[in-house]
Computed example of a mutant assay.
Amino acid sequence: MRLVYLFCALLSFQLMAGSLSWQKKADLLVPVQEIYPAVFQGEIYVAGGLSSELPKQQGQMTDAVQIYNAKTNTWRYGPALPEGRHHGQLVAVKEQLFLFGGFIQANGGNWSASADVLKLDLQQQRWLKVASLPQPLSETVSWVLEGRVHLLSGRSPVSEANAQWQDQADVAIHWVFDPDSLIITTAPAVPQAKNSAAAVVYEGKGYLLGGRQVQAGNKADVHSFDAKNQQWQALASMPEAQAGLAAAVLNGKLWALGGEFFQQGGGVFHKVWAYSFTGQRWQQQGDMPTPRHGLGAVVLDNSIYLIGGATAVGLKQTSAVVEQLMVQ
């Protein structure tokens, strides 16, 4: 019986792990971190970003929009943003591309949170401001549920001061943006105020994982949200408390990758974690070829693309690396 049990356990692990393969793709044109890419019209878009490789006089941020075509494995520039911007939330919904909030150069600083809602006008090939958030918001994450954009958690100014990172505080914001009416409504708040989390959608539900509370450090919490009954539910926590991570859903599993920590001098997470929705548990699935934080993750052609980020904690060693993760 013991042998049978061990065999079943090994088979369960193999089914969970599957077979992973990594492939390096063409580098970004501009190395960037603190990005939230989106798949739009079959291509990957990266809008703005922060970089240790960019000049300090421009706030080490860029207005560049970089577009990746997976068929040709090439990057090209798209219509630039109105100004340099980082930590802006890029979202494709209903054949439209929007950018929400983020940090810009304003008020004498490089970390002025923006309330802008920008939209890419395909005819004019430029970004237009189409709405404003109820208050400036950055380091937020998002879902698209039932054709609407949910903005979750992040950081927002605590007073009139809005120029430096320390002018902001963690928030439990949960806003819903209608891309047709451009109206923003409020939904049940995130269970805890935090920033630098990750968010995915699976079978009509939203999942929010990880993140950071400035006073308390990284979080391992995972919560799901059911838009139909407007309720949050706590799930199995992540094995490691991670912030500045990326996440994606592929082959019926939730994948969590990268992030940074600041204890004992700080560092970057290297383990790849997968959460089984059916088994409701986490399992390590090897290591990232290039561990980094502040990276983006999107699913395209039945694989996960990991984009940019930084290989050292903070604003250091910003990377142009793009890697494709395939799961058999």
Rank of each mutant, 00 (worst) to 15 (best):
S237Y: 13
S138M: 08
F7G: 15
L20N: 10
T290K: 00
S159D: 09
L295C: 14
L54G: 06
D287F: 07
Q96F: 01
K228Y: 12
S153V: 03
L122N: 09
P134T: 14
Y45W: 14
K228A: 12
E53G: 14
G154D: 05
S181R: 03
G265I: 14
M61T: 12
P157E: 05
D287E: 15
R212H: 02
A163P: 09
M238R: 08
H150C: 04
F98S: 04
R2T: 06
S52I: 11
Q192I: 01
N162L: 12
V39C: 07
K24C: 08
V272G: 07
P134H: 10
K219A: 09
K194S: 05
W22T: 12
D116Q: 08
S319D: 10
D27S: 10
T140D: 00
Y45T: 04
Q135A: 11
Q324V: 11
L306A: 01
H174L: 03
F261Q: 13
L28G: 02
Y202M: 11
V158K: 10
K219G: 06
M1P: 12
G78S: 01
L122A: 12
F177M: 11
Y45S: 02
L250S: 13
D301A: 12
E160I: 06
V117N: 00
K25V: 04
G314I: 05
I104C: 08
S21W: 08
E34Q: 13
A47Q: 15
M326W: 10
H270F: 07
D27Y: 03
Q328V: 04
L50M: 13
G252Y: 14
